[in-house]
Amino acid sequence: MRHDQANPAPERRVRGDAPFLGAMVAVGLVYVALIVAMLVADASFTSIGAIRDALNDPNIRFSIGLSLITCTIAAVLSVWVAVPIGYLMSRFSFRGKAVIDTVLDIPIVLPPLVVGISLLVLFQTPPGRWLDGVFHSMMNALGFDSIRGITYEVPAVVLAQFTVAAAFATRTMRVAFDQIDPRPERIAMTLGAGHATAFSRIALPQAYRGMTAAFTLAWARALGEFGPILIFAGTTRLKTEVLSTSVYLEFSTGDIEQAVAVSMIMVALAMVVLLLTRLIGFGKGAV
């Protein structure tokens, strides 16, 4: 059809973006409001005095220290297994890949209680008992006499946190490597590199942000872990008590104000650590 100069097509009017953006913001705000409301309710339920009391309680102090140490170890271990698994799952196809993929999701899908029971049962089997014994002698040799094996000891806390946190870190690293173009690695191979060099000099430096994200996620998961720790590590004060356990112990003795105070400490601690990690890992722009 010829262009009709006498009767031009009516000009198209594009509706304003305000309704669309407004709806997006409104839906988003519902969730943000829920989170903030929870924290505000917590804060109003407790007092600065109760938080100060909690901070002065030697049990809680121990619990804060142990949480920081175990979460960090669990997060480092998680990234350490997540990088190779994520790389392999992203770069190679092999028989049984779908099965492995499903297995990797099990710790995410399983109820936390079941993870704890499974760990407990595993370490009651002969290989589990043997490993427990080997670990005991290893700790002895290193001078940590107080750690007598894995089950119901500090290593059980780390293992319980790691089992779940690593699954999240692995997912994150898989996505990170999926987003990295594999072609430069192949070019590196034509230039004389083997797989190892292509991985360490081309892929890994690009995965830095992914590793930071995986570490952060694993650390946060580990801090929130409770079910597996309760069953596999127990809730012994000044021994295997971490912050989530503290909240449970305070709550179970009916001291809800103290339980909420410890929860607030936990929130503050998590925010500080996550902000710091982002600042170091992603640079200033990411905060």
Binding site: D181, R183, P184, R186, I187, A188, M189, T190, L191, G192, A193, G194, R201, I202, P205, Q206
Partner: peptide, 29 residues
């Protein structure tokens, strides 16, 4: 293996190494 063939390959999109300086890319091989 690709690295043993002695071939210089320039792919269509360049496929440069994103985290390396130009100097390091050229010095890579």
């Amino acid at each position: 293996k690709p690295g043993e063939r002695g071939i210089g390959y320039v792919p269509q999109d360049g496929a440069l190494f994103p985290t390396m300086t130009v100097r390091d890319q050229i010095a890579f091989a």
